[in-house]
Design a protein around this nucleic acid. Structure first.
Lengths: 132, 132
DNA sequence: TTTAAATTGTTATAATATAACATCATGTAA
DNA sequence: TTACATGATGTTATATTATAACAATTTAAA
């Protein structure tokens, strides 16, 4: 199990915003949305984001420079993330497949290098966009 | 099989530079290195990079905003990329594992969404850095 | 309770990437 | 050949993403 982290004020404000968002949020969009709550500078946002990523409450979608809340039960997967991304509507879904995570967690390359972490992003069309 | 692409002058200059580099190169480092060859503006670099990525001659390491040449025999894997990244020395290696690529190419999520593309980045310590 | 560690606030700036527009080159179809 | 479409180029300006540096404050442990 993982340690519970008490979020600080800024971290909580920013987490709540991302958590409520139906889509990944970008840093400066977050900044814009929390300015009324007293968070005025990019660094305040980035620092909170860094911490939230570190403790697994949110994940960064690297190909989009955007952040989404982790919805895996207990956010234990900060080091093993997989997402599906629709290339039309940009909908992003976190994939939770036991098979996939087992396969990747145990994957070893030719040199026997063992990994402590991975991030996987799948691209394609979501159901809705396929039908259009 | 894939169509052979004749690279344009700018594309060739930039590809050659990346191809010779032992490590992933960042866009502005590329720009700096090709200025003597007449490529003066960021856009010229980004346009060539976009094209080279599109045709599979190079790949973007999303978590690093950097580019490496594809070393898979015929660059057929523009849509299916996997890399290992050392978190200390930042060495990046393209993984070519038939098992892995088969597994991922056939992966379907719960909704049956089929993917046309994926990018996987593993993080850990390379051999050298493990021994330190 | 004082010390270490983490967080905050702030200004400035670095690094990454694209918009908009004019021009030039190349292929191809009438 | 001409004219048309397409893609590539060159250029200036600007948008977007992210970090450096430093001072002050809060929090959590020893």
């Amino acid at each position: 199990m993982h340690k519970e982290h008490t979020l600080t004020k800024n971290q909580q404000i920013i987490f709540d915003l991302i958590d409520k968002s139906p889509e990944p949020m970008k840093a400066y969009s977050i900044l814009f949305n929390v300015q009324k709550k007293g968070i005025k500078a990019p660094l305040q946002v980035y620092r909170a984001l860094d911490k939230l990523v570190e403790i697994g409450k949110i994940h960064k979608i690297e190909s989009r420079n955007a952040f989404i809340a982790c919805h895996n039960s207990s956010c234990q997967v900060a080091n093993a993330t997989a997402f599906s991304i629709c290339e039309i509507c940009e909908k992003v879904t976190e994939i939770s497949s036991v098979g996939l995570s087992k396969y990747l967690a145990n994957f070893k390359d030719k040199d026997g290098m063992k990994y402590s972490k991975y991030n996987l992003e799948f691209f394609g069309l979501c159901k809705k966009c396929t039908l259009k």
